[in-house]
Every structure is written in C-alpha cells, then in structure tokens.
Amino acid sequence: MPTFWDEIARPLAEGTLMTLLVFIGGIVIATVLGIGVAALRLSKFSVLRGIAWVHVEFFRGVSVLVLIFWVFFVFPLLGITMSPLTTAWVVIGLNQSAFIAEIVRAGIQAVPRGQIEASIAINLSAWDRFRNIVFPQALPIALPPYANQLVNTLKETAVVSLIGLADLTFRGNELRTHLGHSMEIFVSIGIVYLLLAYLLTQGTSWLERKMRVEPKRGTTPKQAIRLRNFFIGGGIK
C-alpha cells in the first residue's frame, strides 16, 4: 500500500525542487541580462539604446505563456531545440529581464545628478563613478521593486507545467487527476508557494535593511560599500 510520502509528499517535494530550479536559473539569467540591458538603455549610443528599448518593450509586452509555447513548440521548426528546463530558463529569464532592466535603470537614474557631477569634478573615472557613487546609492532604491520581481518570477514559474516540466503546479495537477481532492491539493501547493514567497520577501527585506541609506547624513552606507566590494571589488584608487 502506498504511503503518504510516496503518494503525495514526495511528488510535491520533487515539484518544489523543480520550481526552485526553474526559479533560480530564470532569475539569474534575468538579473544578469536585465543589468546589461539597463546599461544599454543608459548608453550614449542611440543604436544600443534602441536595441535595449526593443528588448524591453518586446519581452515586457509579450505574454510569457505565448513566449513559452513559441520557444518550445515553434522554435524546433526553425531548427532550434532546447530541453524543457532550458526553455523554461530562457523564457523566464528573457521575460523578467525586461522588468529588471527597468528597475535597474530607474534605480540608477534616481541617483541625484549632483552626486555624479561632483564625482566628475573630482576626476573619478567612469568605472569608479559607477562603483563608488552610483551603484551603492542605486542599490537600495532598486531593491524593493526587485524583491517584488523575485516573487513575481517565482509565481511565473508555474507556466512551465504546460510544457511538461514537472514543477509544483504540474505535480499538483497530476495528483488531482489521479487522486481527486482538488481543494486539499490546491491548498497544499498554495501554501508551498506562499512559504517560498515569504522566504524570498524576508530575505530581500533583510537586504533592504542592510542597504538603507542613512537618512540624517544622506551618505553611502557602509553595508552598501561592503556589498559593492563583494560584487565588483576595490574602492577609489
């Protein structure tokens, strides 16, 4: 006789792991690409700005459901065949990169112009300006909307169930088909999504607290500099 673990808990646990795998791959691609596209959006070259603009408008405007069907079912007809997991990463990565690019761009553009002008006045190079002046101030501004995007991305992973990838939603539907009990199963997978989202928001809230700019002085926080050093190294030379 099948146990509770074998019949219900194990499929849901495996589905949760797949959801996390899709989420992590997707968000890494989205973040890296999003930062790159944001940089292009702020470029002084109009061609690069144009390409970035098209990327953002296209991937922000096209439904992720349509996109995943296209990549999974239509691209093979053009000779491009990706595994279901790669398809999921690429589609979620591209879709979310458009939103993240705008978050990063808005964060960078929110840094007061005077800060940048001052750094130019003291003869900092463009790279030093970015890592010492712009990035540490843009980061706390971009973090809250980025946290929202993380949760959105987590929920968006459910579309991969439509291409046969056995994520949490897919496993839930499978259990419904074989066992019935829709309410119990939907409640269970709802709780798992809620828990994962809660962990994400708690993690990003912690980061936000660490990154918060001191209101009295309006100076760059030490934590932001530490984080900056962690990601891009060094200080002003």
Partner: peptide, 18 residues
C-alpha cells in the same frame, strides 16, 4: 529609426540562429 534598426537586428539574429 534606432528602435527600428534594433528590431531588424534582433529579427536578423533570430533568423540567423536557424
């Protein structure tokens, strides 16, 4: 013009992948 150019570049990239 640059947006149109960007679109063409993206489309060309996609087609060239096939």
């Amino acid at each position: 013009i640059t947006a149109a150019f960007g679109t063409v570049l993206l489309a060309a990239g996609l087609v060239s992948c096939a």
